[in-house]
Amino acid sequence: MKKVHISTTINGDEVDFLCEPTQTLLDVLRDELHMTGTKEGCGTGDCGACSVTLDGTLVCSCLVLGAEVGDKSIETIEGMAQGEELHPLQQKFIDHVALQCGICTPGLLVASKKLLERNPDPSEEEIRYWLAGNLCRCTGYQKIVEAVADAAQEMRSA
């Protein structure tokens, strides 16, 4: 299959890649760019493990074609920590044991970060509904909800 050439921005870096017209953004990130922090749980938009932001919008990267992302700004889990310093959400996820196996964690963190940008003081219910697109099979969600609420509070008082 003939590949297309795309130039775009990922986590602030200019990136060029070639992809088949049928490859998704998730395939491009993982298989072409070897940015494997973004996970694939279903490939059909149902689990949220592949969450990234595309020009600031939270999307399932398995539902976006690689060929569509030219000249956009993409943020992935790899761009979340600032050097050694973890984002407050990342730290709170660790502190609250909001991750067990961790396969859902990158997607949940990207989605939670977007939530706090839109709503710095979400209620428990708002957190639960916002994260309803991100499946976690290990934790039962409680510690995730607590971690997000705690991170929100810390970020508000910062």
Binding site: T36, T38, L86, L99, I103, T105
Partner: peptide, 20 residues
């Protein structure tokens, strides 16, 4: 500290599908 945690929150932990 939990030895697996930082790698998991930064996307660096390597699951089987992450090996090439």
């Amino acid at each position: 500290d939990r030895p697996d945690a930082v790698d998991k929150v930064t996307g660096r932990a390597r699951y089987a599908a992450d090996y090439n």
